[in-house]
């Protein structure tokens, strides 16, 4: 306890062990996607829970962020008499970064925690063990539908977030900052490239995977009663947040790192 080096060593080893366990769980979960049965009905139900119920929070986040962004860029740009960059910068920032990242984080806050709480409760009340005794593989029944649903739903949500975010900028830009609405839309369309949209969707799908993986992993492996479930819920959200931000950085560097 007193030796700080030993403590650091232990923390480091524990972190490595945790990464190992998580990778193992992820590998098993992905393998089971290709091992029938796939419970499509459960996947659809999850898509509804993840997608439809997240729409308000994701939409509002995008709206306010897009609007604030337009205001800031206008103020910043006016120092160089460059107010006209507003539509271009807003659309790039929203589609490439803020739409997927903020959308991913908002959904992670809602969904990873809910998944961890649900699966954690099923774990500590032995419902997961009960599945096994009823000839049903718990990974197939619980984890695979959540992974599939999140990977398919997040791109749709982010598409909505991007659209609303740009719209938020448009409203502030035209109503408050006096930009011409026709020009605004024209510049937005000119700046936006296919690669931006593709990278946005790829990010969204990856974030969806992270969200469902973290919720499932922490819930599935929780132990120790109600307290354990609470801990699993917190850990699911925190780790999903960090992994989303890290994955975003990696994808951004890979996709845009070589552009000058």
């Amino acid at each position: 306890m007193t030796n700080p080096l030993a403590t650091i060593g232990r923390v480091f080893l524990n972190a490595l062990a945790e990464i190992g366990r998580l990778s193992h769980f992820a590998a098993i979960a992905v393998m089971h996607i290709f091992m029938p049965p796939i419970y499509w009905r459960l996947a659809l139900q999850q898509m509804w829970l993840i997608g439809y119920n997240s729409l308000p929070v994701v939409g509002l986040t995008a709206l306010f962020t897009g609007a604030a962004l337009a205001q800031q860029i206008f103020v910043g740009g006016s120092r160089f008499n460059a107010e006209s960059v507003v539509p271009g910068v807003v659309v790039i920032a929203i589609v490439r970064e803020l739409g997927p990242v903020l959308g991913g984080l908002m959904v992670a806050g809602r969904v990873s925690s809910a998944m961890a709480a649900e699966l954690g409760t099923m774990r500590v009340t032995e419902q997961i063990d009960a599945l096994t005794t009823l000839s049903t593989d718990p990974i197939n029944y619980l984890v695979v539908p959540r992974l599939i649903a999140a990977v398919l739903t997040l791109p749709l949500l982010v598409l909505v977030a991007n659209t609303i975010g740009v719209l938020g900028g448009f409203v502030i830009g035209t109503e408050r900052l006096g930009l011409n609405s026709g020009t605004y839309l024209q510049v937005t369309a000119d700046f936006l490239e296919n690669a931006d949209i593709v990278s946005s969707m790829v990010k969204a799908a990856v974030f969806g995977f992270i969200i469902a993986l973290m919720g499932s992993y922490h819930g599935y492996n929780s132990r120790g009663g109600a307290q354990g479930v609470g801990k699993a819920t917190t850990n699911a959200v925190v780790s999903a947040f960090i992994m989303i931000l890290l994955a975003n950085l990696i994808i951004t560097v890979i996709v845009f790192g070589n552009q000058v």
């Binding site: 099923m122 009340t125 032995e126 419902q127 063990d129 009960a130 005794t133 009823l134 000839s135 049903t136 029944y141």
Partner: peptide, 25 residues
Amino acid sequence: MLFQGAALFDSIPVWQNVAFGLIQG
């Protein structure tokens, strides 16, 4: 198996719990 705390699935109604092994399995 009958579990210590019954371990019923709380997301589905009672009859589906009983029929679970028949339907899914």
